[in-house]
Simulated scan of single mutants.
Amino acid sequence: MYIKKILWAIALIGLVVAAYFAYFVYSAMLSPNTAFNNEEAYIFVPTNAGYADVRSQLEPLLDDIDAFDALAERKKYTSNLKAGRFVIKKGMSNNDIINSIRSNNLPIKISFNNQESIAKLAGRISAQIEADSLSLVTAMTDEAFLSDSGFTKQTALGMYIPNSYEFFWNTSSEQFRDRMLKEYNRFWNADRNAKAKAIGLSRDQVMALASIVHEESKQASEQPRIAGVYMNRIRIGMPLQADPTLKFAAYQLPEYQNTIIKRVLNKHKEIKSPYNTYMHTGLPPGLIAMPDISAINAVLNYEKHNYLYFAADARKLGFHKFAKTLSQHNINARDYQRYLSSQGINK
């Protein structure tokens, strides 16, 4: 009889332990533990982050952070973190959350366009991925990288084709730069390379001219015609006389920092710069801004015509009037100058 009581006691203790273990498994591992109302929440785990960094992001999202801590320790997540962007879905258990943030790094879609410089591009990208703007500038202007890739500091901006791309949030500066070089080479496919060769321009020259065309007009419908004007000037050895290049040259000077030039004046044509296309024939040594793909394609497929001039259209702002003769161009230009004066735009 005494032995039976001992056996019953052992059995009861076993049942209590099993029940407690079942409760622990359910409460710590399998019961829902989210405290937010949205369907999803995201956390961003930096490279080389410690568990405290992750915990601080999780705490406002969870009902019971202590239960999560216990399971995270048991599953060795606290010492085996992964960097990246991770999703937590409403109603997830601690076990589900740990599995998600341990191995389900989600890509993000980044985009950029119309950046005026490498520095501004770096600022745009750093707002979307983990890498900071300073490290991005350093990577993108690294002389060894540029030399190996066939670029210079003047042409480096042309490597970044404006579009949307998928990246992991924890992408490093070098990884971003290297991926964009691959995208650049993919963009310059056999068809585009053949078209550049047919019009007698290198890739860099196409990008430089496209940057001018894009600064002249954001209207994709007339960009091929503007590109045709510049190709006509190049063909006959006439200076490009592109006002956007004068603005670019001016903005490199201390006296024009933090200013906006709304009206190109004769004094701007006297600026000594390789980007002064009134003073120098041919294309400038690099891009003056980042062109849209539409402007790049406009250069590669420029319109064949006999126009040598164009001026902004005062009656259809954003568009231009084209002319074959200087006399007609002067009429068009004076019309637009009168419009600027009527608006009080004198500089």
Rank of each mutant, 00 (worst) to 15 (best):
Q175S: 15
A119F: 00
F44E: 11
R74W: 14
I108T: 06
Y336S: 07
I6G: 01
E116S: 09
S149K: 05
I331S: 10
Y2K: 15
A249I: 04
V25L: 12
Q57F: 12
M92V: 06
M159Q: 05
I271H: 10
N163P: 00
T78Y: 09
P46S: 12
T155C: 06
K5Y: 11
I88R: 01
T78L: 11
D292K: 05
I10R: 03
A35I: 02
L317T: 12
A28P: 02
I226Q: 03
A210V: 05
M290P: 01
A83E: 07
A227C: 07
P224Q: 10
T259P: 09
A131M: 00
W8P: 01
Y26V: 13
M159F: 03
Y42V: 10
F168S: 07
P239F: 03
L61V: 08
P244D: 07
R263Y: 10
I13A: 14
D66W: 09
K269Y: 08
Q57D: 13
Y275Q: 03
Y256G: 05
K347Y: 12
R225P: 06
V229C: 04
Y230Q: 04
S217Q: 05
N37E: 15
N114L: 05
L146C: 02
I129T: 04
F187E: 02
A119Y: 00
L62M: 11
D178P: 02
V16G: 13
N105M: 13
A250Q: 02
S273F: 06
T141K: 04
Y309W: 11
N330Q: 14
M159D: 01
K5A: 12
V206D: 01
A18R: 14
Y256H: 10
R225M: 13
Y42K: 08
Q343P: 08
L7Y: 11
Q57L: 12
R263W: 10
L146D: 00
Q257V: 07
L181P: 00
N38C: 05
L58W: 01
D243Q: 03
S173A: 15
K324Q: 15
S135V: 00
N276P: 03
A190E: 10
N297E: 14
F187Y: 09
I199M: 08
R102L: 11
L58E: 03
V229I: 10
K347E: 13
G228A: 12
V299G: 00
I288D: 00
H320C: 02
I271K: 09
L326H: 07
S173D: 03
F112E: 04
R203I: 06
E215Y: 02
Y2Q: 15
M290V: 01
